[in-house]
């Protein structure tokens, strides 16, 4: 009788009595939450697309070459040259062209590429933490979680620098020397909302990291919690890829 039950049970994945996806309800809930969060981000990105395409496309820049000299009144120069105008979306590479400690050089999108690299790298360390969790290797989990936290914090630091540079040049929610006001407003909201997610992720990671050090998961017998925050972290990373593509590249 027992064998009979077992064999039919395997046939009926959806037959009840167990999870059809072979995941715990906690992990399933994280997936479902991420699905809905994806829709929140989509709504903001769609708003971005809707507003962006009500303006004309960026004017192609042939004046400033990479590594060229950047004068202090670069924004005014561009306004005069007709590259930053009210009815054209500004070209992101002319807006985001600074790099910390490097003054007077046109470095289009160098910094944001570095940020992207940092964030993706922190996803890699997260994967390594999850993998170490499967082996119940507490010290390794702790090490990679710490690296992930550092990566996330570094990303947030970079974002803070980018925001303050942008604001320093006169951008506000309601003001934008580079062209249409919506450009700045959307920048703050989209990257801000993403940054808020990164911030929450770092906080979660810190809590989990402390739990790892305390041996909570070792006592529990599994490191599933790492997988759950891992899902969240990869999601935040994936969203950044979209933000980066839409906001900076096209």
């Amino acid at each position: 009788m027992a064998t009979n039950t077992l064999s039919t049970e395997n046939k009926f994945t959806w037959g009840g009595g167990k999870s059809p996806f072979s995941v715990s309800y906690g992990k399933l809930m994280m997936w479902i939450f991420l699905l809905s969060d994806a829709f929140t981000f989509s709504s903001l990105l769609i708003a971005y697309g809707f507003i962006r395409y009500s303006f004309q496309s960026p004017i192609h820049n042939e004046i400033v070459k990479p590594l060229a000299h950047l004068s202090d009144n670069f924004v005014e120069q561009m306004q005069q040259a007709g590259l930053f105008v009210q009815d054209h979306w500004p070209s992101p590479e002319l807006v985001f062209n600074h790099f910390p400690f490097v003054h007077g050089m046109h470095l289009p999108l160098f910094f944001v590429s570095l940020m992207t690299f940092i964030l993706i790298f922190s996803s890699v360390t997260m994967v390594l933490a999850v993998e170490a969790g499967h082996r119940m290797a507490k010290d390794e989990v702790a090490k990679y979680m710490l690296l992930t936290i550092i990566g996330g914090a570094a990303f947030l630091g970079c974002q803070a620098w980018e925001w303050s540079t942008f604001i320093g040049e006169g951008a506000r929610l309601y003001e934008n020397p580079f062209g249409p006001k919506s450009f700045a407003a959307l920048f703050f909201i989209v990257t801000g909302f993403h940054g808020f997610h990164v911030f929450s992720g770092v906080m979660l990671n810190v809590i989990i990291y402390l739990n790892v050090l305390n041996g909570t998961y070792e006592k529990r017998g599994h490191y599933e919690m790492i997988e759950k925050v891992g899902l969240y972290w990869h999601f935040v990373d994936l969203v950044w890829v979209f933000v980066f593509t839409f906001y900076y590249l096209i």
Partner: peptide
């Protein structure tokens, strides 16, 4: 909503296809 979906998917009793 997250709760309802996870419950329906994961917590059905045996035989509740």
């Amino acid at each position: 909503g997250i709760n309802y979906i996870a419950t329906v998917l994961n917590m059905r009793t045996k035989g509740m296809k």
